[in-house]
Design a protein around this nucleic acid. Structure first.
Ligand SMILES: [Zn+2]
Ligand SMILES: [Zn+2]
Ligand SMILES: [Zn+2]
Ligand SMILES: [Zn+2]
Lengths: 129, 129
DNA sequence: CTTGACCCTATAGTGGCTTCAGGGTGCATA
DNA sequence: TATGCACCCTGAAGCCACTATAGGGTCAAG
C-alpha cells in the first residue's frame, strides 16, 4: 500500500499521515526503491484506531495513551474507561457552554428589528455600558 | 489608565491586550515618559466590545468586521445580523456534533464491564474490523 | 538604596494539522 | 522517445488566538 491508498482507505490526508509518523503515532514504514512509503495491514489498523479516537474527540496525547493501553491486553481497562469518562465530561461541558451561547445569540437576533446600526440590539449588546 | 488597569477592568490578560494592539484591533495608545501605555475611555470601550464579541464566539476577523460596522451608525444592520446568524448556525452545528459524540461515548462507557483490556468495549470500538 | 510590583520588547511555543516551495518517481499516451 | 500527469518526497512556514519566556526598564514605598 502506498500513502495515497492508506489515505483513501482511512479518509486521512496524506500530509496528516506523514505528520502522525513524525509525531511517533505511526511507526515509520519501509520504503520502495523510489523512496515511497509502503504500508501493511498493521499500519492500516493503527491509523484507523487513531482516526476513530480523534473522531471521538480525544487529543493526540490521549490517543497515544489509548494506543499504549490497547497493547496491554491483560491489564484492567480502568485507565481506558477513565480517559473515556474524562472525555465525556469535557464534551458535556462544551455542550453546556455552547448552549449558553446559542441562547444569547438567538435572543439578540430576536430583538433586532432590522433598522440602522444605531438602533441595532446586537451592536448595543456588544457595546459597553 | 495603565495596561494593568485595563486588564483588570476587562478581564483580559496584559499580553492579550498587547496582542490586540499588534493585530490592529485596538489603536496604539500614547505613552508616558517611561514608555508605559496610557489608555482612555475609548480604549476601554473598544476592548470591552472585542471581549464581548469573543465571548459570543466570534473570530477576530468577525470582530474586526463588527467593529467596522458598529462605526457606521446610519447603515442598515443587515450585515451585523447576518454575521450573528452565521455564528448562531455555527454554534448549533457544533452542539449537534458534540451531542453525537456524547451519545457515542456514553454508550461505550455503558457497555464496558470493567474487565481486562482484551474484553474492553471501548478499545474494541476503536480498533478496526 | 533596595525591594517588589509593574511595565517594555522580541521571540518562540501551543495543538493539530495545512500549505508551500522545490523537487523526484512511475506509468500511459502521442 | 518524449511528454504529460498523477503521485510521491523533504523541510519549512503558516493557521488561530493567544500564552510563555528571556532579558531587561520604571516607579513608588519602606
Ligand atoms: Zn440589528
Ligand atoms: Zn494572527
Ligand atoms: Zn473497558
Ligand atoms: Zn505544534
Amino acid at each position: 500500500m502506498k500513502i495515497g491508498d492508506l489515505s483513501r482507505l482511512t479518509g486521512t490526508r496524506v500530509e496528516t499521515i506523514r505528520f502522525y509518523e513524525k509525531e511517533g503515532l505511526i511507526p515509520a514504514p519501509s520504503r520502495t526503491g523510489g523512496n515511497y512509503r509502503v504500508y501493511d495491514q498493521a499500519h492500516l489498523n493503527r491509523l484507523s484506531f487513531i482516526r476513530r479516537s480523534r473522531d471521538l474527540g480525544f487529543t493526540l496525547d490521549q490517543v497515544r495513551a489509548l494506543l499504549d493501553l490497547s497493547d496491554d491486553h491483560s491489564r484492567s481497562c480502568g485507565a481506558v474507561d477513565e480517559l473515556a469518562r474524562e472525555q465525556l465530561r469535557s464534551v458535556e461541558r462544551k455542550i453546556e457552554d455552547l448552549q449558553a451561547l446559542q441562547r444569547e445569540l438567538a435572543s439578540l437576533l430576536n430583538q433586532c428589528s432590522q433598522g440602522t446600526i444605531a438602533e441595532c440590539r446586537i451592536i448595543e449588546a456588544l457595546a459597553p455600558g
